[in-house]
Amino acid sequence: MERRDFLKKTILAGVAASLSFDGLQAALSPSSSSNNLTVESVPDMVAVMGGEPAQLLERALKEMGGISKYIKKGQSVVIKPNIGWDKKPDFAANTNPELISALIKQCFQAGAKKVTVFDHTCDNWQRCYTNSGIENAVKAAGGTMLPGNDEVYYKTVSLPKGVKLKSTKIHQALIDADVWINVPILKNHGGAKMSIAMKNYMGIVWDRTYFHSNDLQQCIADICTWEKKPVLNIVDAYRCLRKNGPQGRAVSDTSLLKTLIISKDIVAADTAAIGLFNQVEKMDIAQVGHIAKGEQLKLGTQVLDRLNVKKIKL
């Protein structure tokens, strides 16, 4: 290829790539608001207990009206698990890989064009991806693992509803995606007290140091006000990290709960998960400041009685 040719093609490709996204897509894609208008009696939250991760997910999604209610044909999907730590699955520091694998398969069944998975890890990203078992699970299910290790992948977005955090850099893949699914694991957490669905948002941003030095709990609530909400929050409580979170020191820090909680309401999902957690380890929800702050920012409700909650034991 001549140099001129190469340059031309590269520029064309670049232009083409930039054309196909952003404004156009936002206008065309079915946004979460249109989903809210459906009148079917779908529960606001489903909790399933007593099965393997894939079984739990299958049942829970069925009760939520099926995955195709949330993911449309041809959409590009980003799944955001917690892959923060260089730990094996038994340590419950990262989302269960079997769950991620099952979810990717569901997305493809719903006709997703592309399913990508990433996290801005706390430890070395390649080691986290590998040792969490998630990289293999994703590849086996036909998904794509993205790097999240460098600032070049992050783009600034504004958060007009944020109290302390007014703008931050979010991973490009998430900005480009049609829909995304938030798949945290239920964990105790040294700083934020608990790490569930809201705290999992910290893995989509580049600069976490800002969070820690500017009222962590408020910043967690603020980042959740980003206009592009996940279509589902799927809390992995198959094995939870009871103490010494977020990394855990040993398998003895974990408890096998074999539970999954799904909701569109992120505050409700976290509230329910803490209720479940309290059976194995005491945790006052008032200590988990970001949940109340999220409710104040109208991200959801802590009053589960107001919601249509479906609980199933397999």
Partner: peptide, 30 residues
């Protein structure tokens, strides 16, 4: 920051792989 700003942080404890840095109650602020 916890002492200076009275906000929760605990990032150091979070990152400690051996639980040598532990978050312990201080004052009556929780």
């Amino acid at each position: 920051v916890v002492f200076v700003e009275n906000t929760s942080c605990g990032a150091c404890s979070e990152h400690c792989p051996v639980q040598a840095v532990r978050m312990e109650p201080y004052g009556d602020t929780g």
